[in-house]
Each structure stands twice: as structure tokens, then as C-alpha cells.
Design a protein around this nucleic acid. Structure first.
Lengths: 338, 338
DNA sequence: CTCTAGATCGAAAGCGCTTTCGTTGATGTT
DNA sequence: AACATCAACGAAAGCGCTTTCGATCTAGAG
């Protein structure tokens, strides 16, 4: 490894001047700067990030944490899409992402501790569980942070407009003539789940539509299997709904599966609308109509919010709500008069 | 931030002894070690990773790079699944992953340079393009590295058994009575694409099956759209195949789409078998029969190989081939006698 | 009682870089 | 000719930690 001292020796200047030249300090002449830069590339000099960080207290890294309760972590399309967007934009600002483990070389420790240990400049967490103690700990710390996919009054958050999303779905279904509209919800202790339930019931109320007994069924952690189970319950009702708003595409796909299995035709017998717009939504049969989350914008806004905090060196508390969009495909249909 | 000097002051020992106590050196008495450890937790001491790395030349980080030619990066299910598996296992060994950008704070630089700058202990790259100069540069360097999804004679590689995969698919199709078997391939300049073509033609030859004119069509970069285009070509043939081995699930799904659109029934008219076993494969209609890549094992083996190199402090050159598996679902069917 | 072998501990240098502050020499002013 | 100004550079301390090597002290050996 070649250091600024090597450059100093070679060029005849001091290490101080070399460092300054490398960092564009004003008090070094054009000529010497150029000489130093030249021999730097000539000798293949590369700065040492650790030394730099140690000295400057800035690491140009951002810690990313996502809840793994669901055991899928990065494999969930929504998560990976958001992270990817975040990464792209953070990269433009010069930051690297570090995916942290929790164990400080086998002395277990919290994510916060681990991030402090790593000296990250900021943290981004993708988590929907408002009660996760790890997340709380990070939020309560003084380090810049932005959390995605849930709300919190003590930090910057960015999430989709789940309320309008619910309304969008219900109003669309209503516009197709449906009135018996059920909701397969996400786990209510999860932020997105809870708000989408709210969006559903608000919209129903505004439309003066009754929520029939059993029409609100908890689909749990958004998985395909749980969506299927929930759908079973709905179809077991004496008076099954003609349309269902499902709080996640995975669940919606599970729901469609059982519907088909039980002899229902989607959308002829039942209309289904999902939430997320994962890739798969466009390729199941029938293609899933859904509320699209703008993962790209979410990543962008999150980056911006985090950058701002890092630069200003203070946490900023704000709530950024990203609009959602109705994507019409094939799983919803006008209710046929009987 | 509280340092070992703070601990030294508080406990009355020297910083040397504190450091030793923290690192389990043998030449510090049980009693003092305990005292130091106690005040450490009491004062909320956390080591500084940068200082440690600077001093020890070990960063406990691994750089990950994946080719982004296809513009999807982490969003591809195969990539994200492999990374996730790798992360889990590297984490157990105490390593963090760093997703690197290429621009050294706006002086653009190569991935290798960036990883050297960051002082990673090893590199994992997921890339299928044997000609990517960035990847070559890293392979040629002396840093421990493992590359996933392609072959190379100068480093550790781990990839799926694409050859057997191809044979598996063809033999399966043949066992169903098919003889007019086509192949929608991946871009031949991509390793996986090329080997699967090889697997296809080898198996056909062994079965003494002819590869008819136009039966081998290049599907390009494995996307749904390109799969669809390729399928169009196949269906335009005077004598379309009765079965198609498609080198990737995305392409297979695209192929099924156009087949359906053009009035063919899958699998009654044409059998289709994919490659990868992405999540979506189980939920399209008909459910896609496919060759499953064992992303979990790939991640595990890659971790092990990298760890080994890091510990031994020397590159090891080896080729780890992970078995694939035929997953029978609904998109293939016994050829009906005419 | 002297000597040696451990057992504990600490001084100090070093990892590679930044940054403050002072020094030097040249230029311009009057 | 004396002075102030400014541009260009370097000495040195500091960031937090590791590690070598020597110092000290105690206990057991002879």
C-alpha cells in the first residue's frame, strides 16, 4: 500500500502539502498540486478510507437495516426495490451502503451499536413494525436516520400514501358497481396493514357501504399462504363479497389461487385488487389489478432526507408521503346485474 | 465517543492493558480483565472500527459487486436471493457487506480501486459476463475473491450445474415423448447462457434428436420481453416445436404469454420448461415447470470459499458446481399422439 | 538467601490521514 | 529602505487502537 508519505518522498514536498493537494486546499500552488496528482496516479496511490474516517469522523457510509421477522429480508421485491433505488441515489452522493449484521464479532449487540461501531454517517431502516425495539433504539439515538414504510413522530419517515391507496381501491371497486367489498388486511400491528385497514373503512363509510360481518379478515404478515387462508374464510361466509381489496400483492395472489381452486372465476365472480405492484402482479392469471407503490420515489426521497440531515448535522423530523397509483389490469370487473 | 483511554483513566490501568483485556490477551489477570470489562459496559464503550482496521489491516467487511448491465441489479430475484444467503452466512462469521459505488467521491474509479480504498477483506461478485473488464481486474488482483454465476480459471467460482440442468430439462421433455425440442437461450456471451446452450445441444445429441433449423433462438439478456420475442420467432416457424427449454424463468414467462396470446395452449400444445425457479414460477398459469437453482447453497459455498481465502491469506482457485433440480409443475405435458 | 521463571503490566511506536498554526520568502506600499 | 501583505509550504499533534518489547514483581528452586 502506498501512502501520502511515499508521495511526499517522491515529490519532495511534505505529507501535509500532499494531503492538501489531494484535497484541493487553496494554499498549494497549481504547479505543485499538479506534480503531486501526477505522481499519485503514476504510483497508483489510493487513499485509505479507515485512516480518513478516523481523522475526519466521517465515513461516507450509510447503514441499512431491514426487519427480518418475516424471514425474507432482502428477498421481498418491495424491500429490494427500495434498497436498490436508495443505493443508486446514495451512490451519486458518494456514499456506500453497509448491510450490517447484528453481532459485533460474536458479542451480540444491537443494530444501533453495530452502526455506531462502524461509524456510519446515517442509517436507513426499512421496517413496518412500529414496535420493533431495535428500530426504536435507533430512532431515539442522535444519529441521522430515515425510516421507510412506517410512521413515527421522532424521526424522518417516508412511506406510501396507504390511506389514499385504500380509498383508491375501494372507490374503484365501487365505480364498478361493487358494494359487498371485503378486505384482506395486513397484520394491524404493522403500520402499513393498519393504515390500509383505515383507508378501507374510511372509504366504505364515506360511500355509506356497510362492512358486513366477517368482511375484514386479517391476512397476517402479507404472505401468499396467509392470503390464501384469509380468502378461504371469506369464501366460507354465507354471503361472500363480490370484490376484495387485499393489502398486499402476495396475499392477493394467494387469494386468487384458492378462489380458482374453489371454482370461482376471477374477475367474473369476484373482483380482486392488490397492493404493491410487484413484478409478479403482471404475470399471474388474471393479471392483478393493484395499487402501485412508487418504490423509486420512496428511495429517492429517503436519500434526500438522509443527506439533508447528514449535511445539517441534525435530525430532522418529517413525514414524507409518497403517492400511490391505481394500476388497472384484469382482476377486477364490473359487477354483473343479477 | 468514549475510548480506551477513558476506560484506562477510570480503571487506573494503562490503555495497553485495557486493549488487551478487551481482546482477551493472556497476559492480563482475570481480576483486572473483569474490572475493565465491567466499566466498559458501564460507560457504554464501543470500539471504533476505523481505528481498529487502521491498526490491524483487517476491516471485517466484504465488498459485493454485481453487474448492472441489465439495469436491474439487486431487483433480480436470483441475485437478491444469493446475496441474502451470502449475507446471512457471512454475518455469522462476523463480516458486514458493503455495497460499493464506483465513484470515489466523484473521481470515478473502478470497483477494485473502490474496494481497496474501503479496505475490504474480500470481494464477492455476482456476474455472468465473463468479459466484464471490471470483474477481470478484480480477479487479477491479489485480494480474496469469489465470483458467482460464471466460470474463470484464475479464482474461486461457484455456479449452478448448468450443463446437467440443460440435460435434465431435455431428458425430461424427451421422457414425455417430445422430440421436436427448441431452446430459447440466454445471450451466449453470458456464461450461464452459453453453458445451457451446451447442455441443450449435448443432450439432444446424446438422444440423437435433431436440432431443427431455427430451433435455437437467442433470448438475449433473460428478460420477459426478450423471451416473448424469441417465442414469436419460434411460433413463426413452419414446423414449430412441441416443447421448449427456456434458459430462464423470466424468458419462459414471456414465452408463455405470447403463446397464449397466439392461441396456443400450454402445456397441451406446447410444453415449456424454465430455469431458475424464481418465486413467480409457482404462480403463473400454468405453473412453470423449471430447473431450480439452489441459491441458498450457492450463497453458503461462496461464503465458505471466501472465508477460507481470507483466513489462509491466499487466493484459492477452484470451481464449485452446485447441483440443480427439476421442479415439475404444470407447464409440461406428455405429447399426445396424433 | 540468591536466582530464575512466570505472571502482569505499561511505554511507545505505528497504522495513514487531516488540520491548525506558524514560518518563509516574495511582492507591493509609502 | 522599512514595512505590511499574501501566497506557499511544513511541523506537529491528534484520531482510537494494536502490538512489541521491556520492566516489575512474586513465588518457587536450590
Amino acid at each position: 500500500m502506498i501512502t501520502i508519505y511515499d508521495l511526499a518522498r517522491k515529490t519532495g514536498f511534505s505529507s501535509t502539502t500532499v494531503s492538501k493537494a489531494l484535497n484541493n486546499y487553496p494554499d498549494v500552488s497549481k504547479k505543485t498540486r499538479q506534480a503531486i496528482l501526477d505522481t499519485a496516479t503514476e504510483m497508483g496511490y489510493l487513499p485509505n478510507a479507515h485512516a480518513q474516517s478516523l481523522s475526519t469522523k466521517k465515513s461516507w457510509t450509510i447503514g441499512v437495516m431491514f426487519s427480518e421477522d418475516n424471514q425474507i429480508g432482502m428477498k421481498h421485491p418491495f424491500f429490494s426495490a427500495v434498497i436498490e433505488s436508495f443505493r443508486k441515489h446514495a451512490e451519486k452522493e458518494g456514499y456506500d451502503l453497509i448491510l450490517a449484521s447484528r453481532n459485533l464479532r460474536n458479542r451480540g449487540s444491537s443494530y444501533l451499536e453495530h452502526f455506531m461501531y462502524r461509524g456510519v454517517d446515517g442509517i436507513v431502516v426499512i421496517c413496518s413494525d412500529p414496535n420493533d425495539p431495535q428500530v426504536q433504539e435507533m430512532i431515539d439515538a442522535s444519529i441521522p436516520i430515515v425510516v421507510i414504510d412506517m410512521s413515527n413522530r421522532n424521526c424522518s419517515v417516508v412511506f406510501s400514501d396507504n390511506l389514499s391507496g385504500g380509498a383508491l381501491a375501494i372507490n374503484y371497486l365501487y365505480s364498478l358497481g361493487h358494494t359487498k367489498i371485503a378486505h384482506i388486511s395486513g397484520e394491524p400491528s404493522i403500520y402499513a396493514g393498519q393504515v390500509r385497514i383505515q383507508g378501507y373503512s374510511d372509504a366504505m363509510k364515506k360511500l355509506k357501504l356497510p362492512i358486513l360481518e366477517g368482511y375484514l379478515v386479517n391476512g397476517g404478515m402479507f404472505s401468499i399462504e396467509e392470503g390464501a387462508k384469509a380468502m378461504d374464510k371469506l369464501l366460507d361466509l354465507k354471503e361472500p363479497p363480490t370484490a376484495i381489496f387485499v393489502a398486499g400483492d402476495h396475499m392477493a395472489i394467494g387469494a386468487m389461487e384458492v378462489a380458482k381452486k374453489r371454482g370461482y372465476n376471477i374477475p367474473d365472480d369476484i373482483s380482486i385488487i392488490g397492493y404493491d405492484d410487484i413484478e409478479m402482479a403482471s404475470y399471474v392469471t388474471p393479471k392483478l389489478t393493484t395499487i402501485k407503490q412508487d418504490t423509486d420515489s420512496i428511495g429517492i426521497r429517503a436519500t434526500q432526507l438522509l443527506m439533508k440531515q447528514i449535511i445539517q448535522k441534525k435530525k430532522i423530523i418529517t413525514e414524507e408521503i409518497i403517492p400511490v397509483e391505481l394500476i388497472e389490469r384484469e382482476s377486477c370487473k364490473r359487477l354483473k346485474k343479477k
